[in-house]
């Protein structure tokens, strides 16, 4: 299959982790194809990111323009609609920017759209069979996508395992000049600034051991149980989104796609069900241990070790045992 493209997010001169996953997914669709990575941006950071992407992808398209220094789907979408050929398959990671860019891009390309795929199960008769999750991940669905007029496919970050591939010497084509002849589109959405999430007193991204707490804690006062355990372990405390939404802990302690991505040696998930958004922040954690009272909680799929228990009952027991072991 030709016409295979991957739109790569990048930051500070390096492609996003999902780049390798997109490559793996592309190879699943067509093992022999030479997928083209597309990177948009501006200046040396874009150049550096393209260099690194070229170690993964045989071809890299670079779209550089000062207007693209900040990701703005409203500017990029028409550019991609002109650049990507009819009938192409375009892969991208299903995250904040893709949700902004991709649905409209599929319309502009006249292509089908498959959002947030977690697996491909095969191509048959011009249709791609894939797996999606519905109802907040409680149920999965097999879907079938018509590829005849091309498709835009966004992939759940972390769902496609990056393969072990030897670095390649990809070719970087600068599409900035040639394909911007149509001029920059009118910017009906104008970027102003990015307000950084408040910084906290602790940096959970640097912690080696994290005790992370979720909705199972039930009450703000019960957080003491978590802090007690963290103290005994010499760990930091992090949490899932509901805890921040309830304002029980500050935003900088939140793990997940709308919070921090963490990479501790041990991640002890207490009363966290394990939504995909939360697991998205756990990609770098090496050992996940989950305690949850629901045996079917999705966190047990991600975890290495699991305990079915009510954390309110169990944490004090564990804390005591940890103290005794020291």
């Amino acid at each position: 299959m030709d016409n295979l493209f991957a739109y790569i997010m990048h930051r500070e001169g390096a492609p996003h982790d999902s780049a390798a996953e997109l490559l793996a997914a592309a190879r699943q669709l067509a093992p022999q194809a030479a997928p083209v990575a597309i990177l948009a941006g501006h200046g040396p950071e874009l150049d550096a990111a393209c260099q690194q992407a070229a170690a993964l992808f045989p071809q890299v398209w670079k779209i550089g323009h000062p207007y693209l220094a900040q990701p703005n789907a409203e500017i990029l979408r028409p550019l991609l609609a002109r650049l990507v050929p009819q009938g192409a398959l375009l892969l991208l990671a299903h995250e904040h920017f893709a949700m902004d860019l991709a649905p409209g891009l599929s319309v502009k390309l006249g292509a089908a759209y498959l959002p947030d795929a977690v697996a491909f199960t095969g191509i048959e008769g011009g249709r791609l069979k894939a797996v999606r999750e519905e109802f907040a991940g409680l149920v999965s669905a097999h879907v079938s996508l018509d590829l005849s007029a091309g498709a835009v496919i966004s992939l759940r970050p972390g769902a496609f395992k990056a393969g072990e591939a030897a670095p390649v010497q990809g070719q970087i084509s600068d599409k900035s000049a040639a394909d911007l002849d149509g001029g920059m589109p009118p910017a009906r959405r104008r970027y102003i600034e990015t307000v950084a999430a408040e910084a906290g007193e602790v940096d959970i991204t640097k912690a080696e051991v994290l005790v992370s707490v979720g909705r199972g804690i039930q009450d703000q006062d019960n957080l003491e149980l978590v802090f007690d355990l963290a103290k005994a372990l010499g760990a930091e405390v992090s949490c899932s989104r509901p805890i921040v939404d309830a304002k029980w802990l500050p935003k900088p302690r939140q793990v997940g796609t709308s919070g921090k991505t963490v990479k501790p040696k041990v991640y002890l998930a207490c009363g966290i069900s394990g939504s995909s958004q939360h697991l998205g922040g756990l990609t770098g954690a090496s050992c996940v241990i989950a305690i949850n009272k629901h045996p079917k909680a999705p966190i047990f799929q991600r975890a290495e070790v699991g305990v079915v228990a009510d954390i309110i009952q169990f944490l004090p027991v564990l804390t005591k045992a940890v103290r005794a072991a020291k």
């Binding site: 089908a112 759209y113 498959l114 069979k129 797996v131 519905e134 149920v139 999965s140 669905a141 097999h142 879907v143 079938s144 996508l145 018509d146 007029a149 989950a290 045996p295 047990f300 799929q301 991600r302 975890a303 290495e304 070790v305 699991g306 305990v307 079915v308």
Partner: peptide, 18 residues
């Protein structure tokens, strides 16, 4: 162009050692 074929509950992977 995108059709749902069926719903299913995914086979548990190796999952956690309980």
């Amino acid at each position: 162009r995108l059709r749902r074929l069926d719903y299913f509950v995914p086979q548990s992977g190796p999952g956690a050692r309980m």
